[in-house]
Design a protein around this nucleic acid. Sequence first.
DNA 1: ATGCTATTTCGATATTCATGGAAATACTGA
DNA 2: TCAGTATTTCCATGAATATCGAAATAGCAT
Lengths: 97, 97
Amino acid sequence: MESLGNPTRLRIYRTLVRAGFDGLPVGGLQQRLEIPASTLSHHCRKLIDAGLVTQERNGTTLICRANYKAMSALIGYLADECCADGRCEDVETAAVA
Amino acid sequence: MESLGNPTRLRIYRTLVRAGFDGLPVGGLQQRLEIPASTLSHHCRKLIDAGLVTQERNGTTLICRANYKAMSALIGYLADECCADGRCEDVETAAVA
DNA sequence: ATGCTATTTCGATATTCATGGAAATACTGA
DNA sequence: TCAGTATTTCCATGAATATCGAAATAGCAT
């Protein structure tokens, strides 16, 4: 959760989410976001450690993908227990909207 | 979003979410979480600034409440754009589960 | 007004975090 | 093996953050 607390990291993550299942190579992220390679690498590492992102080697490039399972778990965690008094139907519907 | 990046703050927020619409006075949080008053106050302030928590005075105590609207917006933001390629039905269903 | 409780602000400190250049490593193709 | 590209690790630095005791403020009851 704290992995997404950093604006840069949130940007990286959302970019990957948008990229979908094809993912993006680190270099692609670098171009798109204009972040120095080493900084980008640090952030990716954190996202990977947090389980929000996975990497797969494809020849000389590393493909990064958002881990949708982890994201849904995160969303579930946030929405969890908020409906004890039955007053947050809006939260549920908003989540699917 | 970064307001929830801090573990202590996340704990505070979840406690308030669980407390529901009745909310909790600052002192109640303090007892429950065993955090020094000043530290707690700082964190509450940040949550309030972020719009995730609201406060209302009730005599000599301040009642804190989780702002469900903000939470649903946050969830929506996370879930947003993740379904461009139509492959994350699981995310949607998980959110409501 | 005065005392009492709840909460915030002040001030100071230690720690963590983000950042990025330079060097190292990983892989591919010739 | 060598050259070339992609990515990470090393290292250092400045900035932001978390923490909390002590003092200040706010509101209520007497």
